[in-house]
Write a protein that binds this DNA or RNA. Structure first.
Lengths: 105, 105
DNA sequence: AATATATAACACCTTTTGGTTATATGTCAA
DNA sequence: TTGACATATAACCAAAAGGTGTTATATATT
């Protein structure tokens, strides 16, 4: 998981179940690496890598506080996905319209 | 891209930009492999593999028609993502409430 | 039946992921 | 200032992803 700056986008970031769980954890409050990694079986290093991916995708924000690094959810980053889904809602609506026409015939 | 049955979920499926483009293509009508692959620079074989991933994730449905295989968008598959996003909308709303409280103080 | 075309099934290669362990570096607190 | 704790970084590894090309098989058309 070598990560040359800004490599991961939002869609890639949420593709991994571990990363989705991390995001859900952060809904309940900002947390340091130690706590977050305690919620997983894998090594802390592995969790940190996932956090880096989330950070690059701008889904979390990290802030140093003494010797701890506190992670905060940045929900605004999910907007991109919502927008993308929006595109298909149109299709969805069209399908309903088609059905309606068929019924009316 | 070896694919033992049902390996790919919706989140993994939309992680790839090529696959997202395929889905958008299909919004404008059902299409056979030949047309779909003509829209990409990569080989037809590679595109077919992406279609298989999308099919496993139930985002597209394939129907044999003579010697062709016609692909259809299956938007319902995107519901899972919408539901997942829903979880964070709550957080989003809470943040707004917090801001409101701060303003009111 | 012959031919052209579309899809399926392989085999192969390279890069990226997701994980490991080990070793530093920085910070707090007694 | 020393020990305990938290994070950072490096080196390494196995497996999966994403791509290629080639060959085989099925279907339409004439």
């Amino acid at each position: 998981m070598a990560q040359p700056a800004e490599k991961y986008d939002v869609f890639q970031a949420i593709a991994d179940p571990t990363r989705r769980r991390i995001l859900q954890l952060l809904v309940h409050g900002n947390q340091p690496i130690t706590y977050i990694s305690s919620q997983f079986i894998m090594s802390r290093t592995a969790v940190v890598k996932h956090l880096n991916v989330l950070e690059q995708a701008q889904l979390v924000v990290a802030e140093k506080k003494g010797r701890e690094k506190i992670y905060t959810l940045h929900v605004e980053g999910l907007k991109e996905i919502e927008d993308w889904l929006q595109y298909f809602e149109l299709f969805w609506d069209n399908k309903l319209l088609q059905l309606q026409r068929i019924v009316e015939e």
